[in-house]
C-alpha cells in the first residue's frame, strides 16, 4: 500500500459513501405511508432498506479502521453537521413524487457505475461491498428510470412536474463527478474510484432515459458543490435534528 494512504483515509472515504446512502435512505423513508400507491410504498422502502444496509457496512468498517471505538451508530448519529460528507443531491427534500423519483434516478445512474468500479478496489471490504451494492443499485436504477419515463411521458401535469424537478436538481449533479484530494490519493492507491471516469456512463444512462421520457436535459451550467466538504444546504440541519433526536436526547445508552 502506498505510503500516503493510512487507515484514517480509508475510514474517511468509507464514511463519505456511507453518508450518501444514509441521507438518501432518510429521504426515502419520509415517504412511509405517503406514497402514491401502496405498491410504491413498498418499493420505496425496499430501496431505503438497501441503502441503510450499505451505510451500516461502510460505517462499521470505518469504525474498525479508526480504532477509536466508534461503532456504526456513533458515526451515523453523533457527528456535527460539518462532518457529514454526503453529496448535496441526496439531502434535497421531497417536494413531490417527481422530485423523489428524479433525485433517485440521478443518483442511481451515478452509484451503479460507482459501485461496479468499487468492486475492483484493492481494499477487500470495499470491493465486496461494491459487488453487493451494485446488484442492489441495478434494480434501483431500473425502478427509478421506469418512473422517470412514465411520468415524463405521462400527462401534461406529470411532464411539467418532472421537467421542474430535473431543472432544479440538475445543479447538484456536477458535484458527483469531482475528485478531491482524498479521492485522488485513494485512486492512486488503487482503492478508490475515479469519479470523473463515471461521467460517460452517467451521461449515457441519463440521456437515453430523458429522451424516452420526452424531457429536456438542462444545460451543464454552474454546479453547486460543498457537500463533500461538509457545507450543506439549510435542509440538512432539520434532517439531522430528526435523525439524531434519540442519540442527542439520550446520549450513551443502549437501544
Amino acid at each position: 500500500m502506498s505510503a500516503v494512504i493510512d487507515k484514517a483515509d480509508i475510514a474517511s472515504y468509507a464514511i463519505r459513501w456511507g453518508d450518501d446512502a444514509l441521507i438518501l435512505s432518510h429521504r426515502l423513508a419520509e415517504w412511509c405511508a405517503d406514497a402514491p400507491e401502496l405498491e410504491e410504498d413498498m418499493a420505496l422502502m425496499n430501496l431505503a432498506l438497501d441503502l441503510v444496509g450499505q451505510a451500516r457496512t461502510l460505517y462499521t468498517y470505518a469504525g474498525e479502521l479508526e480504532g477509536r471505538g466508534r461503532d456504526e451508530d456513533a458515526i451515523a448519529f453523533t457527528r456535527e453537521e460539518r462532518e457529514y460528507k454526503n453529496a448535496l443531491l441526496v439531502e434535497q427534500p421531497n417536494e413531490d413524487f417527481a422530485y423523489a423519483v428524479t433525485r433517485q434516478f440521478l443518483y442511481d445512474a451515478f452509484s451503479l457505475p460507482f459501485y461496479q468500479a468499487l468492486a475492483s478496489s484493492k481494499d477487500a471490504t470495499l470491493a465486496a461491498l461494491g459487488e453487493k451494492a451494485a446488484k442492489e443499485v441495478r434494480y434501483h436504477v431500473k425502478h427509478s428510470a421506469d418512473w422517470v419515463v412514465r411520468l415524463g411521458d405521462g400527462t401534461d401535469e406529470s411532464h411539467r412536474r418532472m421537467q421542474t424537478a430535473i431543472d432544479e436538481l440538475w445543479t447538484y449533479t456536477g458535484e458527483l463527478f469531482v475528485n478531491d484530494d482524498l479521492d485522488r490519493r485513494m485512486i492512486a492507491a488503487g482503492i478508490g474510484v475515479d469519479l470523473t471516469a463515471l461521467k460517460d456512463s452517467w451521461n449515457e444512462t441519463v440521456n437515453a432515459v430523458l429522451k424516452e421520457a420526452t424531457l429536456v436535459r438542462p444545460a451543464d451550467g454552474w454546479m453547486a458543490t460543498g457537500g463533500r466538504e461538509g457545507r450543506h444546504s439549510e435542509y440538512m440541519g432539520y434532517l439531522l435534528a430528526d435523525l439524531q433526536y434519540m442519540q442527542r436526547a439520550y446520549p450513551n445508552m443502549k437501544w
Binding site: A43, N46, K142, D146
Partner: peptide, 20 residues
Amino acid sequence: SVHAPDPKMALENARDAYTR
C-alpha cells in the same frame, strides 16, 4: 395479486410485495 399501470411495473411490484 398487485395493481400496476403496466406489466413491467406489475413485475416490479410483485417482486417488492411477494419476494421480500
